[in-house]
Amino acid sequence: MSRLRAALAWLSFALVALALAFAFVLSPAEATMGQVVRLLYVHVGSAWNAMLAFGVVFLASLAYLRARRPVWDRLAAASAEVGVVFTTVTLVSGSFWARAVWNTWWRWEPRLTTTLLLWFVYVAYLLIRESVESPERRGTVAAVVGIVGFADVPVVYLSARLWGGFHPASVELAPPMVTSLLVAVGAFTALYAYLTWLALDLQTLRGLALELRGRAEARGAPAARVRTGDTTA
């Protein structure tokens, strides 16, 4: 298992290096936007994986409510955390791009606003998880939020088509740019899989630590706790 994970880590880093080479060497600059168009690869790559991550949260939450197996709850939590990181990357890279082409860091327009809302929804999801003590109750509440929160994902996707705004709904790309974009999406997807695997490990260890602390407290022994930043107590 650890070999498979190491292989996935190397694959992710190799694909990221390849994606950077494609973005900066193979892909041409764009006629009106110039060099800054190269932000497209990191922006779309992370946006695609944020959607994928929240799709996994949605499916894992449904599976948890159906089967009540803790692994689904842990997968949902892991994927939500990575999804928030990718949404942050999408917003930050988009903001740099906007500053270069729109001369502003932010516009309250449909695509940007619904994406920011998406970020808040899943940050709230993670905060709600931390605030519920009982594992069963936490799993149920989080699953409901994970399912309801997913409603914003299609809204983000369709927002530019439905309501217009400054953000383009779709763009026509030259063939080398399409290739570079596909490589970048592949690299970010491998990175998503690797980070989610690590985050799932973290969730599993948190569950085990919580159980051991409970047992230690039941024995009357003060549970030793290494400073982990782990707030589940």
Binding site: L195, L198, A199, D201, L202, L205, R206, L208, A209, L212, R213, R215, A216, R219, A221, A223, A224, R225, V226, R227, T228, G229, D230
Partner: peptide
Amino acid sequence: LRSLDRRIAELRKEIAVLEAES
């Protein structure tokens, strides 16, 4: 990525201590 690695390492350490105590 570094934060995930660090949190995993610290939890492993804590679990080892708790298991040894148990």
